[in-house]
């Protein structure tokens, strides 16, 4: 066990009824590390990262986040969630609040930040994702790419140590994918610890420290991006890569 691992998953298993979504997952993520997770649909990628902030409860093994083990203890889990941000495929902005309020809500309620400070942080982060002029609009008035950038800014408002991305560009029109990837690349450059489920292999190549391939609830292969793409070892990885890179 390395001392600088912020995420440790040991032999983690998870079932939905009789379906075993995760089997014996072992994963350590060091501080500042950028991990891309890929694999066919239903392979357990989303379930794995959703276990990390306990949107799903694992039923076997251990998950330790920044030294705290995930259990049913409510205080512990909220303490962990404060440090672990998540960006969803479908953005999940709060539809009834303006963009600014979306960014301020958790700061006010969870971090107990003052209104003025929450607003400052929110505006700074909207600058960072390059849409400060949208602050007073409602989510529905923004394009998909803009909404996803707001969602990233909303997560950053909590100053998390880790951000989980669950297929952040899968619901976007092609012309909007890059603006979101740029924001994510920018985060990576500033040393954010990231786990990103995505099929954007260009992003994986340029940003990831490690690529993990999952299939049928297991981690089948993990390697540096160069090795992963040029010399995959496992047959399932080869088959998957040939499918997504063929066109």
């Amino acid at each position: 066990m390395t001392s600088n691992a912020v995420i440790q998953m040991k032999n983690v298993g998870k079932s939905f009824g009789t379906f075993q979504a995760l089997k014996g997952i072992n994963l350590e993520v060091a501080k500042g590390e950028r991990i891309v997770v890929c694999g066919p649909s239903g392979s357990g990628k989303s379930t794995m990262i959703r276990c990390i902030n306990r949107l799903e409860k694992h039923d076997e093994g251990k998950i330790i986040i920044d030294g705290k083990e995930l259990t049913d203890q409510v205080d512990d889990i909220n303490a962990v969630r404060r440090e672990v941000g998540m960006v969803f495929q479908s953005f999940n902005l709060f539809p009834h609040m303006t963009i600014l309020k979306n960014l301020m809500l958790a700061q006010r309620l969870v971090r107990k930040t003052s209104k003025a400070e929450a607003r400052d942080t929110a505006m700074q982060l909207l600058e960072r994702v390059k849409i400060p002029e949208q602050a007073d609009k409602y989510p529905i008035q923004l394009s998909g790419g803009q909404q996803q950038r707001v969602a990233i800014a909303r997560t950053l408002c909590m100053k998390p140590k880790i951000i989980l991305f669950d297929e952040p560009t899968s619901a976007l029109d092609p012309e909007m994918i890059n603006e979101v990837l740029e924001v994510m690349t920018d985060l990576a450059r500033y040393g954010m610890t990231m786990i990103c489920v995505t099929h954007e292999m260009g992003f994986a190549r340029s940003v990831a420290d490690r690529v993990i391939f999952m299939d049928a609830g297991e981690i089948v292969e993990e390697a540096e991006p160069k090795a992963f793409f040029s010399n995959p070892k496992n047959d399932r990885t080869k088959k998957f890569l040939s499918q997504i890179l063929s066109h």
């Binding site: 902030n53 949107l55 709060f94």
Partner: peptide
């Protein structure tokens, strides 16, 4: 879920 993930 987004609210949960933010720690609400």
């Amino acid at each position: 879920e987004a609210g949960t993930a933010l720690g609400l």
